[in-house]
Structures are given as structure tokens and as C-alpha cells.
Design a protein around this nucleic acid. Sequence first.
DNA 1: GCCTCTTTGTCCTGGGAGTGGAGAAAGTTG
DNA 2: CAACTTTCTCCACTCCCAGGACAAAGAGGC
Lengths: 396, 396
Amino acid sequence: MRRMTARPANAHQARLLKLLRDGGPNSRAQLGDQVDLSRSKLAVEVDRLLETGLVVADGLAASRGGRRSHNVRLNPHLRFLGVDIGATSVDVAVTNAELEILGHINQPMDVREGPVAVFEQVLSMAAKLRASGLAEGFDGAGIGVPGPVRFPEGVPVAPPIMPGWDGFPVREALSQDLGCPVMVDNDVNLMALGEQHAGVARTVADFLCVKIGTGIGCGIVVGGQVYRGTTGSAGDIGHIQAVPDGRPCACGNRGCLEAHFSGAALARDAVEAAQQGRSAELAARLETHGALTAADVAAAAAAGDATCLDLIREGGSRTGQVIAGLVSFFNPGLVVIGGGVTGLGHTLLAAIRTQVYRQSLPLATGNLPIVLGELGPTAGVIGAARLISDHLFSPA
Amino acid sequence: MRRMTARPANAHQARLLKLLRDGGPNSRAQLGDQVDLSRSKLAVEVDRLLETGLVVADGLAASRGGRRSHNVRLNPHLRFLGVDIGATSVDVAVTNAELEILGHINQPMDVREGPVAVFEQVLSMAAKLRASGLAEGFDGAGIGVPGPVRFPEGVPVAPPIMPGWDGFPVREALSQDLGCPVMVDNDVNLMALGEQHAGVARTVADFLCVKIGTGIGCGIVVGGQVYRGTTGSAGDIGHIQAVPDGRPCACGNRGCLEAHFSGAALARDAVEAAQQGRSAELAARLETHGALTAADVAAAAAAGDATCLDLIREGGSRTGQVIAGLVSFFNPGLVVIGGGVTGLGHTLLAAIRTQVYRQSLPLATGNLPIVLGELGPTAGVIGAARLISDHLFSPA
DNA sequence: GCCTCTTTGTCCTGGGAGTGGAGAAAGTTG
DNA sequence: CAACTTTCTCCACTCCCAGGACAAAGAGGC
């Protein structure tokens, strides 16, 4: 099938496409209620969208008390690819134009193997999804990488945990390989976009999305838009000092948040606790698996292991301390906690909340929900699809 | 004189007004180079602005190689009032429509005397400026207060250092008294606006403006727009924890930045040093004045007093630590340091820079200037004038 | 089944806004 | 003084679009 290459010709069409994306099939009349256009003008724009093929007719709507309206919807053959490259695994998903996930694969993968190896795997995962009949091709792809990105060009810049990716033309390369438009962003920003589109942050204009995985990052949304900073490194909170003269960090400083609490740090702490005999549960798991991860700590904590609960509480407290500072500074309307470590659940959340509500001023915390992300591992890929759809559904 | 009450009728006119405000008198042809309008359309819009009286003819421009063009400029009789209410003093200034300061008064005043007493003084200062022939009336006023503001309504909310101001309808009241439109904002935001309009931040889209005065606050500019947060308390960094288990703070916590370094904290430290005999210079000054302020510390430091230099270095270091966190998070293109304590000058700046450059990652600090504000005490009043002009030069 | 009312969709016309050309006015340069 | 530039005004033509009229399609009451 020939892929759609059309783009909206003007802001009105872009608006309509986004309404159809976010609200699903809609009648012309309903669309008319949401945009400020005369019936004639609306009809013209919808007709033009039908001509481009981006939008198709979709039968009759239910009556609202009179003549039934003709529904329109985004072309059901449109497919977006959402890719979320983490430090230790890759998520690839296919969505339709309404950003519903049709298929989703996760595979372990070390990002340090470099862009060539990673993309080979991503492409084979995409091919597998295509082969399973979910898509005949892709109309666009969004991709998230675990490091700062020069956004307009779609190129990673000086990513600490991705040696070999610095300056690699991700957007360009993937666009060639997939034969469709591609947008690249930081994985944390995509998680924020995902939670904004389909998760807990749907109605909030200004919020923070803290992702605790192998590292720690923070997506910043200002006025509904992702804020990326001057060089694309905004939200890089893993290296904020959480403990004066604390543990040495890979970045060369001491006491960075990431050195004290993150997937990697937690695993280290768990191994130490097991070896020192502070936790029978962890020792047993270390014995069986040969290694420990945050998931082991979560399981042990769920089983009531005191040492693990302490580890989580302490980490949550450190994280909460940093978030408290950010809340004072940024005064968000919502804080979302996500990433691999969310398996630690409410113990973690409680520790974070305690610290934030204690340290920040009432005016900032008064009506501030601090919640876990709703979407889990799909937040990233949904955000990726959202990123490319925002791009494609904007006037060229 | 009857005041101007006209507002631009559309975005084009608003654009033109702002060009004339920021660029001074301009010919039609020059304006045409800067906006994307046909000659006819431009002429129509300029004519309409002339009709409203907001804009007046201003003679002939220099030739650019052909027929000389007719200049237009903002009505030279337009007057804005800029008011900057600090914790311990008030600045009031008159500007023309191009936001040039025509007259500026500063008077000591304790904000804790409450809104009624403060406004009485502000009005008398405004009257004095008017009486000196600088203005026959005001077309708009901007006012900054040292605490969070619910911006749309222009009402302070839960301001810690301004008991008695909570919920006081500042905008409404002042608008009545002055008989002109009024906008209210946090003083730090206005400083940021001022530095953006006429100071060091003219060309930067995303920057932070840290004001160290009696308290500590931070103006946040995102994409050229001041960011105020969900409840108007964004930038309230004075109560971020800088020292774990540090000094008790008025807010109830310990170790807040403001408790360790601010005009007030510095004065306290200075008195203590004088009494403990650690600084002969300060002791002498305490003897003569009966009290010490940040200015005394600055003077003593300039004279080479080691204790004072240490105080400044330590405070700068604490501040730098907090700013380092903000830089990692926000990735600004510029950090401006301003407020009363800037008298401490380069000793302070050096301490801050050292800490930020050491603690934040290279990608964020690589090209990050950290500089003192250019405008000093006029930043606030210029920002105030800018605030109201932005409001009045927008379509109604 | 029929009549009336409501909603939706299409067509058409009148008005208004804006583009861009023609040409006059005002200056510069050699 | 002639040729070229720039600015400004005027005007005709185009394009867009709002909103009314009307047709189509359905709901509901009797």
C-alpha cells in the first residue's frame, strides 16, 4: 500500500485532525461544535481532508434528534511506529492514527552496543509487527532515546549512558530505513507526552514527569508543550546533588541523586545487603539468579522484607527531597512518577510524598497530586506516536 | 489631558505597536520590512493606529536612496507608571511608551505596614512625579510585589513576608485610585521582564533571573514568556533546602536557602561576626550605625575584610549549589543574578559560578553565561512598565 | 400513516478584506 | 537635467467566508 504523505494545508485542518485523533470518529456537526468555523467553511475543509485520504467517511452517526450526521474518522490504515529505547531494553509498538496501540513488543537490549546494532534490532522488531499483519507500512515514527537530543535535528548530544551515539543522525538514518518521517526526543519527554495524551496528565497544562529507571530524568511540560531547554538537556535531574559529599557518581561529582537512587543504584544496594546478610530474602534471590535488580527489591519488599522497605523508603526520601526543590521552583499542577522503579509502588510514592509535602511551601503543594503514571511501559511508545502525529498533523 | 484608552484592534496592530515600542520611531517602509503584510494593508493598519491616537506622525525619515519616508512613533504623551514594592523600599518610575525612564523615585518603606499604607505612599510618590511635569496622567501601571500573585486577578496569595496582603485586590484598588489599567506581578518576574526588555537577556528565549534581596526568588522565562506556575508561586526558591538540618527558617523547615543567604541572613551573620570580634571592620560599622546590612558587608569586603569575604563566598556557594540544581533541571540559556545583594559583586558571582560549573553537567553549563543584571534597581520598574505595555498593546 | 418539529447538509449570494499593479510623488546620483 | 530609487496612494480584481434559503433525513405525537 502506498503510504499517506499528505499534511494539513492550514491550521484549521490541523485542528480537525487533532480533534479526530483525540476524540475518535466524529460527525461533521460535532466537529462544528468544537471549532469556530461556519458550516460552509467546515464542510470545505473536511472535504479537502477527505480528498487527501487522511480522513475517510465512517457511516452514519446516531441521531441527535433530527437528521443523522455522516461520521468522519482518521484513515484506519494509517500506522505510526513508536520506539522507546531504554538503557537495557527496547519497546516498539504500532498504533493507528488515534494512537491506540495495536501491537507492542519489548526486548532486552543494551543501548551501549551503539546505534547501528540497536537500529538493526528495532527494524527487525518493526518488521515482525508488520509481518503479523498489523501494518503494511508506517506513515511516521517517533523514537525516544535515553539521553539529551538536539530536537530540531533529531540528534543525540553528549549522552552520558550512550557512548557511540553522540551526534549520530538518528532521525535521518531511521527515516531512510523506514521510508517515513521520523521525530526523535528524549525518552522522558515522550513518557510525559504519553501520560498527557492518554494517562493521568490529560487535563493539566503544567506538570512534571519523573522517570526513575536505570537513570533518573524528568519531563517538563509547560502550557501543554514539552519544554526541552536551550541545549535539549532540560529535565536532567539525575545529577542534582541529593547528598552532600555522598557517593561518587559516574559524572565525577559526589552525592548525585542517581548515585543514591535509581535502578542501577538500587541493584547495587540490594547485592550489598544480601552479601552482608541483612536480608535473607535478597540473599536467596541472589543465590538463584546470580544477580539482583530493582524488581527483586520490589518483590522482597512486597513479601515484607524490612531491609528492602528501608532501601525503598530511603531512596524515595532522597528523590522526594530533589522533587521538593523542583516543586518549589516550578510550581507544577501535577507530578507523575514513572519508569521501571514504579514496581516499588506505594511504598516509594509515600516516601516521596512525605518529603515533598514536608519541604515545599503549602501554596505549591496545597493542591498538588503526586501520582504514579497510568500507562506503565506503554507511556513511552504512546508518547512517541504522539510526537510524530503532532508533527504530521501540523501545517507543513 | 484625556488619557488614551484605545487598544489595538487586531494582532497586526499589536505587532506594530510592539515594534514601535522596542525599536523607537520607524518609517512605514521599515515597519513593512519587519512584518509580513502588503503595503496597502500596512498603510491601512498604520492609519487606524494614527486615528486611535496611540501612534503619531513624526516627521520625515532619512532617505534610503529615494523618496523620504514619513516616520511614525508611539504617542510621546503616553505615560506608564512602574511600581516595584520591595520588602524594605518602594521604587516608582514614570516611563514613556517606549519604556524609557523619565523619572524614578526610591523610598524606604516596610511592606509589612500593609497595603493601605503602602499604596498611600505609592500614590504620593506618583503624584510627586506627576507634579514635576513628567506626566499629566498615566495610561497604565505595572506593579510588582514581593510574593506570589494570582496573576489573572492581580491578587497576592499567601505571601509569607507580606502579612495583611493576602487576598487584597491590588489590581482593582490601584486601578481605581490611578484611573488607569493596572497589572500586578511578582517582583522577581518583573525583574526578569526588565532584563529581557532592556538588559542582559534581550536575545535569550529561556533564562532564569535570580534575585537576592531580603529574600530569594527566581524569575523563569520560557520561550520569551514569564512562567508563573499553577498557583503563581513558581520561582519561589528561597525555601529549597540548601543545607540538610541547617538553620531553622521562618517557614518551619530547616536549612532553607533563604535562612543561610539573603539580605536578612547576611545582616544577621554580620552582626554576629562583629559581636564575636571576628571582624574589626564590621564591629566599627555596627558601633556607628547601630545595625548592619548587606551593604555594610559589601563595603567591608571591598576593604578586604577576610571574614566578610568568607561570608559572601559561603553564601554564594550555597546559592550556587541550588542554582546548579535548577540549571540541570531547566537548562537555561542564561542566568542573571540581581537584587540588593548584587552590591557584593564579583566575589559573589565567582562563588556562584564555581559551584554551578562544578556541579552541573557540561552540556547544560557549556555555553551558559552567569552574569549580574545590567539594570540594577531600575530592572523592576522597567519590567513593570513592560508588563502593562504588553497588556495594553495586545488586542482587547 | 401523517403531520410537525428538529437536525444536518448543500448551495448560493453578498460583503469584506487584502493583494498586487499602475502610476504619481519625492529624492538621489552623476 | 536625466535616469534611477524609494515611498506612497489608488484601484480593480480575487478570494474567502459568513450566513440565509432550502432540501434531505429523521424523531415524536396523535
